[in-house]
Design a protein around this nucleic acid. Structure first.
Length: 372
DNA sequence: AAGACAGCCAACCGCTCGGAA
DNA sequence: ATTCCGAGCGGTTGGCTGTCT
């Protein structure tokens, strides 16, 4: 026997909302809030609508400060990079874009962004194909060697080259907003952030865990350790230094991204990454035993890495796929922090209005040290 | 001018999760 | 410990609109 419906389908109106219905719902919620019960709400105000439908209408359309359409380039970048990091978790992505709803972003992705990226990919595919081939054999060997790490869903955060400023897409500054004490406490709650990341498929391995004492590093060698003689493995540092609490530095606009100070590694990030990539290159990423088809991994990341990736293939300093993964993993961590922060700082008032706080200032985590 | 097609987006559906009983 | 139920989420659908032929 199936589950009982949430409302009487026969007496419920479907389809587009009329202005009158909108007005009724909006004025009621603005005056009284949702009352914490969407199912009962339509009966209270005499709407022949399902509670779920009311909730959706409010959240996606009637709620104050909702933006529709007109996505900026910066928003595009955030959506794309988060999608690659975490996949289709639209609510989390939406939390990073004030005024945007998950539904809006989902629609935008499905109708425009995906095509935009795939179009670019197809175009660039032909342009770059020849260049790829030359570097492919060596890279695929490395990736095969790293297969075990990937199979373990592990991307170990490492740095391609400490002295080199990597190319990262420009990201918008998320304007700091004020916090209540409670918000600040919650933001400083490492455990809650970690829980979120665990929930998202990742794992903190921070200084309070035994990562750098118990041989985990050996168990999960850094993915690019074999791509260079001096594996720039970053180990967590004892005596955690606050990174983002330094006030003069904007954590987003300069290049001192959190992943330059990683103190943790992520499990599952590789799978999240690949999950996202599979949308772009299903056949190729599916074979992610990372054989010669692993160049598919690169496709779809071009917008993150620019042509540098391909251009470098001609030079001596060519970026390896291991580097790619490392950077991607770092980027994931970076975004995971955004997510963690967002989740902890987003709260909803009684009316369901998102109280978005985007400051990074309260998000503390320990710094890292690079072993050369 | 009109039919076909594609794109877009609001809304629905069904599932999972978590809290309350 | 179990069941129930509402909230929330992501995937999908259907209809409207614009463009092409």
């Amino acid at each position: 026997m199936g589950r009982a419906p949430c409302c009487d389908k026969a007496n419920v109106k479907k389809g587009p909302w009329s202005p009158e219905e909108d007005a009724k719902l909006k004025s009621y919620i603005e005056q009284n809030g949702t009352g914490g019960n969407w199912i009962a709400l339509p009966h209270k105000i005499g709407l022949k609508r399902c509670g779920k439908s009311c909730r959706l209408r409010w959240l996606n359309y009637l709620r104050p400060n909702i933006k529709h359409g007109g996505f900026s380039e910066e928003e595009d970048n955030i959506i794309c990079s988060l999608y690659i990091s975490i996949g289709s978790r639209w609510s989390i992505i939406a939390a990073q874009l004030p005024g945007r709803t998950d539904n809006d972003i989902k629609n935008y992705w499905n109708t425009r962004l995906k095509k935009k990226l795939l179009g670019k990919q197809r175009k660039d595919h032909h342009r770059h194909q020849a260049r790829r081939i030359s570097g492919l054999k060596q890279e695929s060997l490395m990736m095969t060697m790293n297969k075990e790490a990937v199979d373990s869903s592990m991307v170990h955060i490492s740095n391609h080259n400490n002295t080199e400023t990597p190319y990262w897409p420009e990201l918008p500054v998320l304007a700091p907003t004020s916090y209540s004490n409670e918000d600040a406490r919650s933001l400083n709650d490492h455990a809650s952030i970690r829980r979120l990341l665990v929930k998202l498929g990742g794992r903190f391995s921070s200084t309070d865990e035994s990562m750098h004492h118990n041989g985990n590093m050996e168990q999960f060698p850094p993915i690019n350790a074999m791509s260079s003689a001096d594996s720039n493995v970053i180990y967590p540092q004892e005596g955690a230094a606050s990174y983002l609490t330094s006030t003069s530095m904007d954590p987003l606009t300069n290049h001192n991204y959190p992943f330059e100070h990683p103190q943790f590694m992520m499990e599952g990030s590789g799978m999240g990454l690949l999950q996202g990539l599979e949308q772009h290159q299903p056949n190729e990423t599916r074979q992610l035993g990372l054989d010669s088809s692993s160049h598919g991994l690169v496709d779809g990341l071009e917008f993150l890495y620019g042509d540098e990736l391909y251009n470098n293939r001609n030079g001596e300093e060519s970026m390896t796929y291991g580097d790619m993964l490392s950077r991607s993993g770092s980027y994931l961590v970076y975004h995971s922090q955004i997510m963690a922060h967002s989740t902890n700082s987003n709260n909803y008032n009684q009316q369901g209005v998102a109280q978005q706080s985007s400051s990074f200032d309260e998000l503390q985590y320990s710094g890292g040290v690079v072993e050369e």
